[in-house]
Amino acid sequence: MKLKLLSLLLILLFVAGCSNETDTKTDATARSDAAEQVTQPQTVVGGLKISIDKQEINQKKTEDGDRVLHTFTITGENMGSVSAGLGSIDFLLQTKNGDLVELDHTMAMFGNEIAVGESLTGNVSFELEEEQQASKLIYQTGEDQLAEWDVKSE
Rank of each mutant, 00 (worst) to 15 (best):
L69V: 06
A35C: 04
L103V: 06
S135I: 05
L93Q: 00
L13C: 10
G122Q: 00
E127D: 06
Q132E: 15
H70V: 05
K49W: 03
K61I: 13
T39V: 15
S7K: 06
L137S: 05
L128V: 04
D104P: 10
L9Q: 05
T62Y: 01
G98D: 11
Q132R: 05
V82T: 15
I89A: 06
L69F: 10
E130D: 09
I138E: 03
V38A: 07
L48W: 03
S125W: 04
A134F: 04
W149I: 02
L48I: 04
E118H: 14
L6C: 07
N58G: 08
L120P: 03
M1F: 13
D144M: 15
T75W: 00
H70Y: 11
K54Y: 12
E131W: 02
N112W: 10
N20F: 13
K2T: 13
R67P: 03
D90Y: 08
G142N: 03
L5P: 04
K61F: 09
L146E: 08
Q133R: 09
G47I: 10
V151E: 00
T73K: 08
N78H: 04
A35K: 15
K152Y: 04
N123P: 02
L128G: 06
D27N: 14
K60M: 12
I57V: 13
R67C: 02
T121Q: 11
G122V: 07
T39M: 10
V101P: 00
H105L: 12
L6I: 13
E77Q: 09
E63H: 11
D150C: 09
G17N: 09
Q55H: 08
K25E: 12
A84S: 12
G80D: 05
E21C: 02
T71N: 09
Q42M: 10
E77L: 11
D23R: 14
E21I: 14
A84W: 00
T62R: 06
M79C: 05
G117Q: 09
M109D: 02
I74P: 01
L9N: 02
P41S: 10
V45N: 07
S32Q: 11
G122R: 00
K152H: 11
Q94M: 15
A34E: 11
L100V: 10
E56K: 05
S7N: 10
A28E: 14
G47F: 06
V15N: 06
Q37T: 06
S119Y: 05
L9Y: 07
F14M: 13
Q132K: 10
